[in-house]
Design a protein around this nucleic acid. Sequence first.
DNA 1: AAAAAAGTTGACCAAATTGTCAACTTATTT
DNA 2: AAATAAGTTGACAATTTGGTCAACTTTTTT
Lengths: 218, 218
Amino acid sequence: MASAEKSRKQLVTDNADERIRARNVLKILKAATELFSRKGLDGTRINEIAELSGLPKGNVYYYFSSKEEIYKATIAHLINSWDQAFRHISADREPAEAIEAYIKAKLEHARRNIAETRLFANEILQGAEHLPADARQHMREVTAEKAEVLNAWVAAGKLAPVDPRHLFIMLWSATQFYAEFEALACDALQVGQLKASDYNAAARTISETVLNGLRPRT
Amino acid sequence: MASAEKSRKQLVTDNADERIRARNVLKILKAATELFSRKGLDGTRINEIAELSGLPKGNVYYYFSSKEEIYKATIAHLINSWDQAFRHISADREPAEAIEAYIKAKLEHARRNIAETRLFANEILQGAEHLPADARQHMREVTAEKAEVLNAWVAAGKLAPVDPRHLFIMLWSATQFYAEFEALACDALQVGQLKASDYNAAARTISETVLNGLRPRT
DNA sequence: AAAAAAGTTGACCAAATTGTCAACTTATTT
DNA sequence: AAATAAGTTGACAATTTGGTCAACTTTTTT
């Protein structure tokens, strides 16, 4: 009986409960991402993070030694998904189809990770001083690699001549705008809040305009 | 002689020196815009504003009653130039030429007002809570009005069908990106810092892609 | 079941920061 | 030139905030 009770407890500990540390660190990171994304590093109080994550402040400091460390952890966390959508840009696909898939994926990612997207924007806006050097290096490399794919498409006559780097910037900025500048987007579209249909309309406009714009001229 | 001396002094006071209040308020606003644009409202210390503007802190409080009031003043100041470039979008011009001029003007404005552009982005990113309601109303109205111009062009067969509001968002985001996310743009373009030539290349890529993309299909 | 490790907690401290103020100087008016 | 208004200044009060800590509880190991 004591044994049965123990194994039940262990089950709870291992699954639903998970490891205490992992669970609490995640709680803190989630709350921090939300707050940092809205008020920035300096604008966010440790007390707020504690409150939103449901932990006393002292407990937050048990897992992280400073506010900046929490911030860096949130940045490190979101960096992982930065180049996800880029996988669509691959040399063996049809350009139009690949670019359209990329736009869709980017918009979808922004819509489903609004806080992370905003936090990333905030960090870059403030000079990217907390972005680890290796993360930036990785971003540079991936961008250069995908730019080569675009160049190959242009060389093969499948796309009108275009500077791939500026094109990427166009796509990044357009797809992230709706999450980052939601307030402005709502004003422009004259809606109270963005819905999935607005994101779909955005995807259509961006895709149609850019794809038509890049159609090779004979 | 005493009269001559007095009139010289008055001349100095009225021109080069200007009104003391106007000059100092401007000093403070300029320093504050620079700092707010990089570190946000909460990240900026009043001491820093005082230092950068060359005034003692007490003096700053002589002109503004709080940090937030300074912030609001900087926002109110930059809002004035928000719709400047929009004047190019007018019904009596050729669409292609008008849109190209708009893109150029927007990019040029961002390049020459980097701090203001960044500050505006920061404010929207954080939820636009300090943006006066009438300013937002004005932005909504101007956007709606210009959207009608685009719709007329589409109806006249001068442009391919497009949702003008999403198109505007594409243009806003693309043209502001270089100022707002300079760090990311430098990485993508593999340059140390953006030069006028980079802005020109951006203008070319955006214009060519979008204009070609909007060319009416027969 | 005892011991050790991990996690929790609220009170507390030190530093930073906003905003005030009274004394002072410079500019303007009468 | 006297009086008044406008602007300057550094010291200081009040508050906020990041971070510490020792006592305590829960969980895990032996």
